[in-house]
């Protein structure tokens, strides 16, 4: 199909990324494993959406499925429109053409995500050369420009450095430079600060926030760290067992979580002031994706469970303008407990 014949699903002209009923199944031996189920969202340029959840909740798989960067056993269903392009129907060549130029990705562990036997300058230049058909010297000039953009000190000298010769923070800066080298409009960041020291984490977060504003990119940020999510994102989608369980503006979700899982997540996060408050871990463990409960996946761990929870998977219903939650009791009085004080680093905001 041609790229131009699509009108954004919600009719909103500002929507850059539109995802409808996205699902991912892994064909393992025996039963297929459903990792993602019915994910819907829209994203505008300049906006940051955060996927928040525990390991195995499907955050990373959701993000990777947007550019089909999944193992060959994965079957992706649903629709992904990126700037009017139906991404999931693209052939390999067209998909390659948008990877790096329209959508780029930053990985968690920059040591292993960069090729150890090529200089960082070469790796950045290579992407530019491949996509823009320019000469290697132009590619190298762009690499230098990018390293300066991500504030790598003595960038010219670092062009010829190998990844192992750089510190973790510098490596992640290089990773960001690599991802941004062809000016993508959507940046996918997969736990980009998790592998870094706390002090370096903040620097990288600030850099990402700054670049995202400067370049006006849409950003999807995957993290399990509530503090990081607070700092970087405008909106949040809390994920549990392959589904969005709560979505909304970051600040609103933190201030008044509607889904019991979000409440549990907030209560089990160590943050400023928690020496006074109580740390309350969520009992139990996430469900086995091969053996899901018939109703709400969170029901077995939920303290507010009612009979309706076990009947069928609750719908994601709008509970306030721009806020949704997947819980039959969101309307009940008392469920919208005042959340804990917003966690996070004391970073300057605006």
């Amino acid at each position: 199909m041609s790229a131009g014949d699509h009108t954004p699903v919600d009719g909103n002209a500002g929507t850059f990324l539109s995802v409808r009923n996205l699902s991912v199944e892994f064909q393992s031996e025996g039963m297929p494993l459903r990792a993602i189920n019915g994910v819907d969202f829209d994203l505008h340029l300049g906006e940051t959406l955060c996927f928040l959840g525990e390991s195995g909740s499907g955050k990373t798989v959701t993000m990777r499925s947007l550019v089909q960067l999944l193992p060959p056993t994965a079957r992706i269903g649903g629709k992904v429109w990126l700037d009017g392009i139906d991404v999931l129907t693209l052939d390999a060549d067209r998909l390659r053409a948008i990877r790096g130029t329209q959508v780029s990705m930053i990985f968690q562990e920059p040591m292993t995500a960069l090729d150890p036997v090529f200089t960082v300058g070469h790796q950045i230049a290579e992407v530019v050369v491949c996509h823009e058909g320019v000469s290697w010297s132009t590619g190298r000039a762009r690499a230098l420009e990018m390293l300066e953009l991500v504030q790598v000190p003595s960038a010219r000298r670092r062009l010829d450095a190998y990844p192992h010769e750089l510190s973790g923070g510098l490596r992640q800066r290089v990773m960001i430079a690599l991802a941004l080298s062809c000016k993508p409009k959507l940046l996918l960041a997969d736990e980009p600060t998790t592998a870094l020291d706390a002090t370096v984490q903040i620097q990288i977060l600030l850099l990402l926030r700054e670049l995202q504003r400067e370049l006006g990119m849409a950003t999807i940020f995957v993290t399990h760290d509530l503090g990081v999510a607070c700092e970087i994102s405008d909106r949040v989608a809390v994920m549990y067992a392959g589904r969005f369980v709560e979505t909304g503006a970051m600040a609103e979700v933190i201030d008044g979580p509607r889904h019991p899982y979000t409440i549990g997540l907030l209560n089990s996060t160590v943050h400023a002031g928690s020496e006074r408050g109580k740390l309350a871990p969520i009992p139990g463990a996430p469900p086995d994706l091969l053996d899901m409960p018939p109703g709400c996946a969170f029901a077995p761990r939920c303290s507010r469970v009612v009979a309706a929870c076990a009947e069928r998977v609750p719908d994601l219903v709008e509970v306030a303008p721009g806020r949704s939650a997947r819980c039959p009791r969101t309307g009940d009085p008392g469920i919208s407990l005042p959340g804990p004080t917003p966690p996070g680093f004391p970073l300057p905001r605006e």
Binding site: V67, L69, R96, G100, T101, F107, E109, T112, A113
Partner: peptide
């Protein structure tokens, strides 16, 4: 199997590269 191969793919490099 190493992760950098995914980086190359995520950046849209052709198979020969």
């Amino acid at each position: 199997k190493q992760e950098f191969v995914q980086t190359l793919q995520a950046n849209g490099l052709p198979p020969r590269r």
